[in-house]
């Protein structure tokens, strides 16, 4: 029975760690399917994390914090859109700048508002047990005994996949990323669709960051995103630009991350450096195994101008 408890702890951790990556990667999938690559996810997540924490601290409501985080990150997403979509600047360079802004601004805001506050505790987001379903052995506690943001992440991926693959809106988004000229000929606004996809992506990155500060760590720490924005970027590619793929890739990453911590705790005689690289090696190996038909949107990273 002991190994079942152990497995359960491992899988619970998998889902908890995958949630912020899922939010961010699903959002970025939308942006990239529309042809805009935003590598500034790390910065957006930090802005989300600090906003959620500050608003939750001031208002006492976690949900208000999450909402504010999404909106704050969206503002920066739109700003990113102005520079890359309207002005046609290089998306990679602008994204890199966004990372710097996010890191500096989040630290600045935190120091400005909390530099002198000593009691920084906020009420953590509660775990909600789904009736009946949480009674299922192993899978019950793993999938149905989490906080509401984890449920939201798990439901978001299939919903986003449905919209992208089965609706007119999804078709329009996919077509702007493949052949913007044709989309424009069909009477759709390339600029509008790209702005929408980028803003939506930024909003979800903000929620992903909010998860870290208000649903996970219950505090803000400078640079607390710790590279998850870049991992989400890799997950989009690994998930072959599909929301469900992003969910599976996040879960694989979460699992291997939890596993390496567990193996270190179990004192097995393998150097910790090898265990630490496990999540990254697993990602690379999985990508090699799944090689083949490229799914990358054809117009990814290419600014759209009506004259071209």
């Amino acid at each position: 029975m002991e190994w079942i408890v152990g497995l359960q702890a491992l899988l619970q951790a998998t889902v908890r760690m995958a949630a912020p990556l899922t939010f961010t990667a699903v959002g970025e999938t939308y942006g990239e399917r529309a042809g805009v690559i935003n590598i500034g996810l790390e910065g957006l997540m930090l802005i989300g994390a600090v906003t959620a924490y500050a608003v939750a601290f001031a208002s006492g409501s976690i949900w208000l914090g999450v909402l504010a985080a999404g909106l704050a990150a969206m503002v920066f997403g739109v700003l990113f859109g102005v520079v890359t979509i309207t002005l046609g600047a290089n998306q990679i360079v602008t994204g890199a700048a966004l990372n710097l802004v996010g890191l500096g601004l989040s630290s600045f805001i935190y120091r400005a508002f909390f530099g002198t506050v000593t009691d920084r505790a906020i009420q953590p987001l509660e775990t909600v047990k789904t009736p009946l379903l949480s009674q299922i052995p192993v899978l019950g506690p793993v999938l149905f005994e989490q906080n509401l943001l984890v449920y939201a992440a798990l439901l978001l991926a299939p919903l986003a996949a449905w919209v992208l693959n089965r609706t007119m809106l999804g078709l329009a988004i996919r077509s702007v990323g493949e052949h913007p000229k044709a989309t424009a000929t069909a009477g759709l606004s390339v600029i509008g669709l790209r702005y929408g996809a980028v803003a939506f992506g930024a909003l979800l990155a903000g929620v992903g960051g909010a998860y870290l500060s208000v649903a996970y760590a219950n505090q803000f720490v400078e640079n607390m995103v710790a590279g998850r924005g870049f991992i989400a970027l890799a997950i989009v590619v690994f998930g072959r630009w599909s929301p469900l793929g992003a969910l599976w890739a996040s879960l694989l990453f979460g699992f291997t991350f939890a596993l390496q911590l567990r193996l270190q705790a179990a004192n097995i005689q393998i150097a910790y450096q090898f265990l630490q690289i496990l999540p990254y090696v697993a990602t690379i190996v999985a990508m090699i195994l799944l090689r083949g038909q490229s799914a990358q949107p054809k117009a990814l990273g290419v600014p759209y101008t009506e004259r071209a």
Binding site: A13, Y216, A226, L261, A265, Q276
Partner: peptide, 29 residues
């Protein structure tokens, strides 16, 4: 009595610290 050492990658990653502790507890520490 045995002691195991878990090396974390990032000193700012509160989440990873929390998960590492939960895994160690699941392992019986």
């Amino acid at each position: 009595h045995t002691f195991s050492m878990i090396v974390l990658r990032d000193g700012n990653d509160v989440g990873a610290g929390k998960e590492a502790a939960l895994q160690a507890m699941a392992d019986g520490a």
